[in-house]
């Protein structure tokens, strides 16, 4: 009888530990709501989801690289590069400070600049993947290099081609594509949410229903065993990097459109935010484990926290402290979990 009690008590403790992060975040939410009850409004939540949407898209990209056992610090600067290049090509024809005259660059259909930056980042990220896969450069170092190269390219383009003018005055269709909403009942849902949903669904298929995804998990789980099992390690890695690049590009185009402007500082801390969201969402930095719903939850958690903290008037400076604590707690809890299971 007593033993039964101990068992069920252990189970409750285990359950608490396994979900401690959600418990903590739930408590934080309750505190925020207690301080500012007006936080509980549907419009706040749709805002949070809209702000999360672009981040979810590029987090899905970097998550694949993390599952491979790597990391990608270049994410932010690549997003920035894509945003600046696409934005410069998507300004309204009648905008007075247009970078290119209508003779140089006429009004382009949205798909063209998107394809162009997708191709550009696919190339950069593909080379990045090749450096890691073929030459065995440590992913951290390789991404550090690619980050600087992307940033330099972005600065050069912004300062020389765009004359250092922040890019705005976008084409109407582009703005609507990124800022538009649909009303369903009383809810107004942004297009961005649907784009993110589509990306997550597509990536879920890639991760769980294709050989590419399975091979990705195999490489992250045990690269040497993957080689023995006939997995084409290099090709798989490069493909995952290319997919990441394309998602960064898409995310960058959408982010510029959402905020209505772009400049060379864009993307400075995106990489860390995205990687932190993945880790909080349960993607192990050791590689080989992680789920896309986890990534989505990770991004949304961070967004809720930062939006909620702004809402109750916590200084932006302190928000970094809170975010940092969440990352550390998430990883500690995760380690505890795996350690306990190993016993």
């Amino acid at each position: 009888m007593a033993k039964e009690n101990i068992k069920s008590r252990d189970k409750i403790i285990d359950l608490l530990y396994d979900n401690a992060l959600y418990v903590i975040i739930g408590v934080m939410l309750l505190v925020i709501i207690a301080m500012e009850p007006s936080f509980v409004r549907l419009s706040n939540f749709t805002t949070i989801l809209t702000q999360s949407a672009t981040k979810i898209i590029y987090a899905c990209g970097v998550a694949g690289i993390i599952v491979l056992g790597g990391t990608d610090l270049a994410l932010g600067r690549e997003v920035g590069l894509a945003a600046v290049v696409a934005a410069s090509l998507l300004q309204a024809v009648d905008y007075s400070q247009r970078v290119f005259t209508p003779q140089q660059v006429p009004a382009l259909p949205l798909i063209l600049p998107i394809l162009l930056v997708a191709l550009l980042l696919a190339l950069i990220s593909g080379i990045h993947g090749f450096i890691v896969a073929h030459w065995g450069v440590a992913p951290f170092i390789a991404s550090l290099g690619i980050q600087l190269i992307s940033y330099g390219a972005c600065l050069q383009y912004f300062n020389q081609v765009c004359n250092s003018n922040p890019l705005s005055g976008f084409d109407k269709f582009y703005s609507r594509f990124c800022q538009g909403t649909v009303k369903i009942g009383g809810l107004s849902l942004s297009y961005l949410m649907f784009y993110a949903l589509i990306v997550v669904a597509l990536m879920w298929i890639v991760w769980n229903r294709t050989t590419l995804g399975k091979n990705m998990f195999a490489i992250g789980g045990n690269k040497e065993a993957a080689k023995v099992c006939g997995v084409n390690v290099k090709r798989t890695m490069i493909l995952i990097y290319i997919i990441a690049g394309v998602l960064y590009a898409f995310g960058g185009v959408l982010e510029a459109g959402r905020t209505g402007s772009a400049n060379s500082t864009m993307g400075a801390d995106y990489a860390m935010d995205a990687i932190a969201a993945c880790v909080v969402g349960g993607v192990s930095m050791k590689g080989g484990t992680g789920t896309l719903p986890g990534v989505v939850i990770g991004v949304i958690i961070f967004q809720i926290i930062s939006y909620g903290l702004i809402y109750v008037g916590v200084s932006p400076d302190l928000q970094y402290v809170v975010k940092g604590l969440i990352i550390v707690v998430a990883v500690v809890l995760d380690n505890r979990k795996t350690m306990r299971k190993a016993d």
Binding site: I205, N208, R209, T210, T211, K214, N215, F217, A218, G221, N222, A225, A226, V228, C229, G230, V231, G288, T289
Partner: peptide
């Protein structure tokens, strides 16, 4: 072995392509 992956994963990985249908779906 792939230590942190399931028995199923560890069993099928060497012939993963044998499990795809025509559109590449596993």
């Amino acid at each position: 072995i792939f230590p942190d992956l399931s028995i199923t994963f560890n069993t099928v990985i060497a012939n993963i392509r044998g499990y795809t249908n025509r559109i590449g779906w596993l």
